[in-house]
Every structure is written in C-alpha cells, then in structure tokens.
Design a protein around this nucleic acid. Structure first.
Length: 206
DNA sequence: ACCGGGATGTTCT
DNA sequence: GAACATCCCGGTG
C-alpha cells in the first residue's frame, strides 16, 4: 500500500450514503493504534428516524450538526462509546458510524485495553469494541479528522474501497430497519456477526 | 457453537 | 421512567 494521505474536508462534505462505502478500507488512527475500516452504517439526520439527530439538535448530538470531517462520539447502554465520522455541511446532521476495524498496528495496546478479547478478530469487531481498543471516549467528541491535531484521523493508504461492498440493514435499531444502510467488506473476519439482544427492562435496584 | 439474561448511566419524554 | 446505533459471561449442547 502507498503512503498514508489524510482525507480532505470535501471527502466528508457529501451524503453519508456516498461517504459510507467509500470509508471502507480507509485507515482509522487513534490512541497510538491503527485499523482498517471494514464495516460502517450511514445515519441521515432529519430524514432518518433511527438517527440521533432526527428530533433535532441536543447537547449530545451537537457535533453531528457541525461541519464535516469531525468525530461524533456518544455514550450508550451505560458503558460503551461509539464513534461516527460527521458528513454534510455545517447545519446538516449526517454521520457514518464506524462499526468494525481490521487491526493494523498497536495490537498489543488494543489487547491491553480489551482484556476480554480472545482473538485478534475480537479486538475491533463492533462499534463499542473498536472505541475501547483505540481509547476513544467523550474526550474525542468533536475531534477534527482532517487536521488530525486531536490524535484521531482517517487516512487513505492506497487501498481502494471494495468494488462491490456488501449491504444490509443497520444493527441494533428499532425503526427504519428496512433501509440497507450498513456497508461492509465482503468476507472480512472482523465484520460483526452477532445480532444484539433488544434492550431488556431493568430490574429495580434492591 | 449458540443462546439468553444482566450490566451500566445518559438522554429525552 | 423508558429507551438506548452494545457487550460480556455463564449456561447448555
């Protein structure tokens, strides 16, 4: 593969349905580690009932409404962080959720953070897993992926996106399940395979 | 291997 | 108070 080149601001300044498949095989760098993006999902703001931005701007989703090429990081299920690349111009809230990476470098550090992972393919196979492996937290919400000054960036290392990316429904949502806005690299062993359980009612604290 | 249930806390209704 | 763009673990086969 060639030298690593940062993606330009204009790369992100397009519809998330266009950006999502093009992010496949790009390289995410954070926390002293790097991984090749092999699974993503597009979220389309006001037109998309599954998007955090569907009901308008809040403190949590503010970064989604900002300029393209920044990282939107949110906290979910009481313990997990997930990261998105923000798309479209300032004021339009679209983003691409990063769902799985093929680990490239810093594997020892990933394993140290992800003690539960028993195989290399478990290090970054899931949106919360990859954030944990690369040390991405709320501190990275709003980080500039183009400038890279915040220690997070996406690079093109010369590997093109797949000619025929696999597509299918997005994972873990209850609305707009019919939209095939999940994209992945066919056959990659790091792509998520499980289906999450629906959220269960929480028991009363004793 | 597959499956089911529990964990955890922020956000928004 | 309900929902949540999830993951881990222990049970069973």
């Amino acid at each position: 593969m060639g030298r690593r080149r940062r993606l330009s601001r204009s790369f992100y300044d397009r519809d998330s349905l266009v950006v999502a498949p093009e992010l496949l095989n790009k390289v995410l760098v954070a926390g002293g580690c790097a991984g090749r993006i092999v699974e993503v999902e597009a979220y389309r703001g006001g037109e998309d009932p599954a998007s955090h931005a569907y009901r308008g701007r809040t403190a949590r989703n503010a970064v989604m409404f900002g300029p393209p090429g920044h990282l939107y990081v949110y906290f979910t299920y009481g313990m997990h962080w997930c990261a998105n690349a923000v798309c479209m111009p300032d004021g339009v809230a679209q983003a691409v959720l990063l769902r799985a990476l093929a680990p490239l470098s810093g594997l020892e550090e990933m394993q140290a953070r992800r003690r539960a992972a028993r195989k290399e393919t478990e290090l970054c196979s899931g949106p919360a897993r990859l954030c944990h492996a690369l040390g991405i937290t709320r501190d990275h919400d709003g980080a500039d992926l183009v400038g890279g000054a915040d220690g997070v960036a996406v690079f093109d290392d010369g590997t093109p996106p797949p000619d025929n990316p696999a597509t299918g429904p997005r994972v873990g949502i209850r609305v707009a399940v019919e939209e095939p806005w999940r994209y992945w690299v066919p056959g990659d062993p790091n792509v998520t395979r499980w289906s999450p359980m629906p959220a269960l009612p929480r028991r009363r604290p004793r």
